[in-house]
Design a protein around this nucleic acid. Structure first.
Length: 479
DNA sequence: ATGTTC
């Protein structure tokens, strides 16, 4: 049934007026190309957005960013806020399986030319230092159960305290690299078991580690505040909470199906399983989710440490590379934030926090331009750095897009890539690939993704993000 | 995303 009624509000903004069991309107951002894609999928992801608007205690519109696509329960690219004092709910499907999956951008003082003679050495060193692939694990560092729980409680700072990284790194992570509330005792033994050996690993799927260069600057003032300049080498890390977060999500999805029934929450889709924020179940999930989120921050911190070692393996001294964290931000979590004097729980699933100038938790250096918003594209084209805007604060609960979004299923991509040699094609374009599995490279081929430039143009045009710079890949490490 | 069907 292709019957999602929507109307155009302005060039890039569309509204699905409240109807049926919806408590509020839904709003999404798109251009003609994205609209055509939504139609081609029978509006499956917009229907998911409509479903989100039926959950109790939702505040303001249910929102979707222009990289919206179908997900578990909630659409990926979805943003939804709930009022804890008005029966508002929390839903594991509104956060996603990869809890606190996110992106961290490192800057260097190296130019593309500095890198060129050592590019192969660096690619090999990164692949050696950062385990990638399904079930990837580290053998060099063992975390005792006690130390692992400290990581879940303290996040990235627990890693810095052990010598993995620098104190300055922590100032450049969303929420200081630690979500409050984290309680490892509400994480199952099975989740802890899965997570232990995986701290400091990349994983598989769309996760990656990329060495890039700044190709173009659109906003010189913001670029200067961020310390970005044309020709500069950067490193982008995309990974999350690995098997630990996945297990936490699975544990609570099962429990929340029963909880929803107990609290009389009508679910138009079982995958929306939810519990009141203030219920024991809701509280348990929020505390466990925060612990998994801290694991993800710590994961990106340990990878950062190993990226620094890899640059040194390749012959760059610390004073030459000067690897610094520009920013680390997540796109799969639920956080308490305040809008128009109201404290709400904002679910972001495949959506990025994009706080504008003057907002809380934005590092002092970025306070006048807004927080950096990192938007990875695909491994052949480019990624973008945006800045948070006042428009995002008033219209999208301080949120923006998180990536390009697929336009081809994994299966279809694999089939299309079968008769090609993606790794050789990318190398011919100057992009070195080191991957644990050819199948993953095939699934992740550039054509499998929408052009992220189109997504970013919608965000920029709608005023919920501002283009700052574009990054082009030089080395790609994949699972 | 995921010890990719504990």
């Amino acid at each position: 049934m292709d019957n999602v009624p929507f109307e155009r509000l302005d060039r890039y903004t569309y509204r699905i007026p409240r109807h049926g069991k919806m408590w509020v309107d839904a709003v999404f951002y798109a251009n003609d190309e994205i609209l055509a894609q939504l139609e081609a999928e029978g509006y499956a992801s917009l229907k998911q957005l409509v479903n989100v608007a039926t959950l109790p205690g939702i505040v303001g519109p249910a929102l979707a960013m222009p990289d919206i696509h179908w997900g578990y329960g909630f659409p990926i690219g979805g943003v939804a806020a709930f009022d804890p004092t008005a029966g508002g709910v929390v839903s594991p499907g509104g956060v996603g399986f990869d809890i606190n999956c996110g992106v961290r951008l490192l800057t260097t003082r190296l130019t593309r030319e500095d890198l060129e003679p050592r590019k192969t050495r660096l690619a090999d060193a990164l692949y050696r230092r950062v385990p990638a692939g399904v079930g990837s694990a580290r053998r060099d560092v063992r975390w005792s159960p006690k130390d692992l729980k400290t990581v879940l409680r303290e996040g990235a700072r627990a890693l810095v305290a052990q010598g993995f990284g620098e104190a300055a790194d922590l100032e450049r992570i969303e929420s200081g690299g630690r979500l409050p509330l984290a309680d490892p005792d509400r994480v199952s033994a099975r989740a802890l078991e899965r997570g232990g050996p995986q701290l400091g690993t990349l994983g598989s799927g769309n996760h990656f580690l990329e060495v890039q260069y700044v190709d173009e600057v659109y906003d010189p003032e913001a670029a200067e505040a961020y310390g970005l300049w044309v020709g500069q080498v950067t490193v982008l890390i995309h990974t999350g909470s690995r098997g630990l977060g996945h297990q936490v999500c699975q544990d609570y999805v099962e429990r929340f199906l029963q909880a929803a029934r107990r609290y009389g929450i009508e679910l138009v889709d079982r995958q929306l399983a939810a519990a009141p924020i203030e219920s024991p179940e809701g509280q348990d999930y929020l505390h466990a989710m925060a612990a998994a989120a801290n694991f993800a921050f710590a994961n990106r911190q340990l990878i950062t440490h190993n990226v620094r070692l890899a640059f040194e393996d390749a012959g760059f001294l610390p004073r030459d590379h000067q690897l610094r964290v520009l920013y680390d931000l997540a796109h799969n979590n639920a956080k308490f934030e305040e809008y128009a004097g109201r404290r709400v729980l904002v679910h972001r699933k495949g959506a990025t926090r994009a706080f504008g100038p003057g907002a809380p938790d934005v590092p002092p250096a970025f306070r006048t331009v807004g927080q950096p918003v990192l938007v990875p594209g695909d491994m052949g084209r480019y990624s973008f750095v945006l800045a948070g805007t006042p428009g995002a604060m008033t219209r999208t609960f301080g949120s923006s897009c998180h990536g390009a979004g697929r336009q081809m299923s994994r299966h279809k991509a694999k089939k299309a890539a079968r008769k090609r040699n993606l790794i050789a094609e990318l190398e011919a374009q100057g992009i070195l690939v080191r991957a644990a599995s050819r199948a993953t490279v095939d699934e992740e081929m550039p054509e499998a993704y929408k052009d992220v430039a189109s997504v970013v143009d919608v965000v920029h045009g709608a005023g919920i993000g501002k283009k700052v710079a574009r990054l082009r890949p030089l080395i790609v490490v994949k699972g």
